[in-house]
């Protein structure tokens, strides 16, 4: 029974840590907007916990460069499993318009395994929320099969609002 409670609890209490890899702050503003009364993600038990050691979900915005990739790796390492990574915004997905820059490594998945991709420039809050909710199913999956390969999920941002509402 305890095991069941824990399994259920895991998807009911995703605490997130948000790391800005050098975004233009567009995606960051949208990410933080999710916490406002308008969207109120605390309904789903989501808390912005700000500390990798306490977090289950890592939200990364911005393109990864050669310097901050170490920070990103370290934050990911400091999160105890099970954990998921959500890349947010065009830059997070691929490096975006900075892709060709001399110091840019590219998308987040060049450095750490990404579970959910949320596109957009900037990504809309609805899409980010949807990304987190998608991520929870990955989290539940990981729990059942801890050594399973990462089945990455992409969120279709064009009709994200509809996706969100249909849930």
């Amino acid at each position: 029974m305890f095991k069941k409670i824990m399994e259920r609890s895991r998807i009911k209490s995703p605490w997130l840590v948000h790391y800005d890899c050098g975004s233009c702050n567009g995606c960051d503003i949208e990410t933080l907007a999710c916490l406002t009364p308008l969207y109120d993600v605390e309904r789903f038990g989501v808390l912005n916990i700000g500390n990798p050691k306490h977090a289950d979900v890592l939200i990364v915005t911005g393109s990864v460069n050669t310097r901050n990739r170490h920070v990103l790796e370290q934050i990911h390492r400091q999160m105890p499993s099970p954990k998921i990574v959500i890349a947010v915004g065009s830059c997070g997905l691929s490096g975006g318009i900075f892709k060709e820059a001399y110091n840019v490594v590219g998308g987040v998945d060049r450095v750490i395994p990404v579970d959910v991709y949320v596109p957009g420039c900037p990504a809309r809050p609805e899409a980010i929320i949807d990304g987190v909710v998608e991520g929870l199913s990955v989290l539940a999956d990981k729990q059942r099969r801890p050594d399973a390969a990462n089945g990455a999920v992409a969120v279709d941002h064009t009709n994200s609002e509809i996706l969100y509402e249909s849930r």
Partner: peptide, 26 residues
């Protein structure tokens, strides 16, 4: 704060989730 807020058992979910996480000590 004009929000809906989490379910009432949220603290229990939080604790149960934390309990089952990978042990990592500093």
């Amino acid at each position: 704060q004009a929000r809906t807020g989490p379910p009432i058992l949220q603290p229990l979910y939080d604790i149960a989730k934390l309990w089952a996480k990978e042990p990592m000590i500093a």
